[in-house]
Design a protein around this nucleic acid. Structure first.
Lengths: 222, 222, 222, 222
DNA sequence: AATGAATGAGGGTTCATTCAT
DNA sequence: TATGAATGAACCCTCATTCAT
């Protein structure tokens, strides 16, 4: 019933204590991400987070006042740069809009669906309404900006004569909608029936661009 | 979490005990639905469910062995007939496929998004992976059947010459994808930015049918 | 989740309701005996008792105010006649004392060890101190009378010249002690190692009578 | 069950936390022993155990996964050394067997009956069948070894010519049987009638040795 | 007399959080 | 900073007991 000396952590033998100190919060957030993604908010135990991060049970409280703070930090950490990057490319690209959608944008969402960041979607769906502050933050940082950028992208296509004016312009969410479907399918139903999510996402973009393409334009024009 | 004086037992004095017994499970499931939808699985306290159903703390256990059983009953209760009904109409309709999609099908998903049943989606996303049995049940009863039926519907459109052959046939999920988006938007972001979900759903169907319509066909043909 | 009509009891189709009514308490006590013997006091559920007696959950409360009352009734029911009978034979017998011990008495305790009544011993050991009234009742009805009778029996043996005067006269419990051991062994250790309890009991009596037999007497004299 | 003001945490101000940790399990086991001995397994509340040990309600779970584990620990803690010690003396002694029985062995069982360890007997009788693992452990560690040792002791007496060959050799339990009787009498009937348990135990050994002593031997020979 | 639906106090267990070291 | 022993509120579930029928 206890007694034997544990091997004690030291996951990175070459790294000095001083150095680890600075990365501790990130390590804890990373560990928390795994746990939250696996078990959901309520079923995640801070003790397990600490164990996964190879720190003591009390340490997370040094950086995060409560479990909820830690959760928020996790969400924030996943948001970050990725979305900014694709938005910036959207603004600067000199590809045709259709080419951009079928190229970088498709690649981005295909990658997203397969990445660990996808789990954050489930977390937000499940817990979002209980953390309004967090939801607001997410909406502002990711969703509203994403919508804006995509609206502009479609408008640019219309301005340039690539696209007809269509209501897609008012519902840019439609370009993103299958991402949610793909993510949830993978997490819930993949074991029952395989879904080629890459194909799903590609098909959606192809069909939508087919639907809005200006008459006389060729589908795969760059 | 309460406040109002309870009527204390036999709140329906005219109703016999024996008769009440038959309705109790449904009442409890209904109360549980509200609580689960509001707080999620883990954060729902059976005591609150009981209070909402105006029964004692222990009564739910008379009808449902555990919290999980109750949860499953909630999910099952919401699934039921609705999906069967639309599937049947899909099989029997003598509308053109496009007309069906823009008529009954659109009405169905628009209603779904606004109904309480939409909350079940969040529950499944959030908790599904912890209740594999339930997920399997849901997949079999709802998802796989729905996919099949929609595949047949699209194929029928192709056979009849309404539609071109397109990969949409392999990804009927695309007709449903915005439903998820609409549901989650309502639950999470509606307070930050209004989304006309009816328009969103309609636009998706219009664009997809535009994209797959056989050349020479008119859009609103019945 | 319920619904199908149960087959409803009727364990004795030929017995009229009127007749059963009179035996109900005994049936309940019998069922309670089984449950208490199997699970102990605390772990016995009145619902199970009722089910075993084929009566409704509430019926036992018509005859026994509380679980404890029922428990007492169980103990009383087991005591009854058996002990009285052997005591009476002890007083009236015209066998020699040694013959009585090796004959009827030995048979009695051998039977006791193998009978269901033995379980009552465990119940008393386990719960006695929490039911002082019951313990007092048991002491008066069974123990003290038994001790007295056995003391008289030994004294008679001494008076008749069968036995030497020995301290056994002050500790008649020694004639009974192995009964406890036999009972507990059967209930606890029999699966690990078989003990011939008949032999154990016989040997104890043989050795004790050997030890106290008056010089010049023969061991197996009747 | 309470009443006295608690000293509130760190009731031993001079003792370091780390050091306390090592003694806590024993303290909890000791407290649990008292509670189990007093109320039996089922009727013992872990909260009372904690209170008796002057720790919080949750602490016992840090050292013992469940109530049952704690119960097992209690039984184990009582078994230990005592029985080993007497067995070893039995093997090594250079007393005559009779002298050993009337000396060290008698002293051991007399002490046992008066000690707190006696309560464990009630626990085992009462709860043993519900904890088969524990019963097996007890049988192996205590009972079977004890039986073996005593069989050897009697055989040694026969070999040395102290004793006649008798069936006692097959039922060494008879030397121990009155211990059970003495323990239960003390716990149940002592208030109704005093029993000199020392005398009881001594008499049993004296009578049994009288019964098996080889002809021509003197009773108190060393 | 009999049923069984309903009650609600009670206890085992978990885990976020604190704090002595 | 960092540890991990300790706390105690909270929650699931059980079951003796009640009572409308």
């Amino acid at each position: 019933m206890a007694g034997e000396k544990k091997l004690r952590k030291s996951q990175a033998p070459g790294v000095k204590r001083r150095e680890r100190k600075d990365t501790r919060p990130q390590e804890i957030v990373a560990a928390a991400f795994e746990e939250f993604a696996t078990h959901g908010y309520a079923a995640t135990r801070l003790e397990d987070v600490a164990a996964r991060a190879r720190v003591s049970k009390g340490l997370p409280y040094l950086y995060f006042k409560t479990k909820e703070e830690l959760f928020k930090a996790v969400v924030r950490s996943v948001i970050t740069s990725h979305f900014d990057a694709i938005r910036e490319r959207m603004e600067r690209t000199d590809l045709s809009v259709e080419a951009f959608l079928k190229g970088p944008f498709l690649a981005f969402i295909q990658d997203l669906v397969g990445s660990k960041r996808a789990f954050i979607a489930r977390l937000l769906i499940a817990e979002g309404h209980k953390h309004p502050e967090l939801t607001a933050f997410y909406y502002e940082q990711v969703v509203s900006r994403g919508i804006e950028t995509m609206t502009r992208l479609i408008d640019r296509g219309i301005e340039r004569g690539e696209f007809k004016p269509t209501p897609l312009r008012d519902y840019p969410q439609l370009l993103f909608a299958p991402v949610m479907t793909a993510i949830f399918w993978r997490q819930l139903f993949e074991r029952h029936h395989h879904l080629d999510t890459d194909g799903l996402l590609r098909t959606n973009i192809e069909l939508l661009t087919d639907a809005i393409r200006a008459p006389g334009r060729k589908g795969d024009a760059r």
